[in-house]
Design a protein around this nucleic acid. Structure first.
Lengths: 139, 139
DNA sequence: TTGATTGCAAACGGTTTGCATTTAC
DNA sequence: GTAAATGCAAACCGTTTGCAATCAA
């Protein structure tokens, strides 16, 4: 990610958030991200993390999914534009899945109905192989 | 819906919530539902609405989707067990869509990967024909 | 009688915002 | 110099919960 944000001025805070986000192997919450940046030794405000994430979302630089507890999870959007993921419920690791079939289905439904501007959300969750052989610790 | 809740005692409050929910043509928020019940002339606590909805969810009597603003929306689950909907972003009207293709796709992905206990969430949103010919008033 | 259910109000968790200060340009 | 970005704390919003009062069985 080369900072294609809506921001007009580059700051180290914004870079730190993007960098931490990029290093994550899965989806992270804004608060987790904040914790990681702070744990890295840099003092940054939680609001700033939220604001950077909001800007990244606005420019389509991140994919967002709903967390179970009502929050939202973020992850950098792959260059090839994949938009659907298989996410581990325990460790958060995720990987894009081939969703062409779903895209086609969504287009078919859109064509069949009299709704306009149809958008779709598809999320797959499971327990990855690593977590299967590991005692449940994430809840 | 015949009150297949987890509750052990029948109260008019629970019935009122279920009835109001059944009358809704689309997904509603807990607060909307509360407003509707109260508007019907009966005094009921907001917490009670939430509790009844939670019990209905626990017994699989309602389908739940995430609202844009972070809240959740409820609607009685059809008898035939449909689970995916096309929802109008403006008026909340919804209708189940034929999602067999998606179910098959989800099963295929599950089989292809090393994830266990894979679950999927699919939501379609759009603007229904009625709302297309109507000025936007829902936001 | 008795414990499930209710209602209120306060707590909660994640997110957003107002505003003075700092900072990039 | 000037406006964008930051940080703090308070506000916000939907939801949950503690607890005394109520009510169905």
């Amino acid at each position: 990610m080369n900072l294609p944000t809506a921001r007009q001025r580059a700051t180290w805070q914004s870079s730190a958030v993007v960098e931490a986000l990029t290093k994550c192997h899965g989806f992270v919450s804004a608060q987790d991200l904040h914790t990681r940046v702070v744990a890295g030794g840099t003092h940054i405000g939680l609001s700033t993390v939220y604001r950077v994430l909001r800007d990244l979302e606005a420019t389509g630089s991140v994919d967002v999914v709903q967390a179970g507890g009502g929050g939202r999870l973020f992850r950098p959007r792959p260059a090839d534009g994949h938009r659907h993921y298989l996410i581990c419920r325990r460790c958060g690791h995720s990987r894009p899945v081939d969703s062409q079939a779903v895209e086609e289905w969504a287009e078919r439904v859109t064509a069949d109905c009299d709704f306009a501007a149809v958008e779709h959300t598809v999320e797959l969750t499971g327990v990855c192989s690593g977590c299967q052989s590991r005692p449940d610790s994430t809840g």
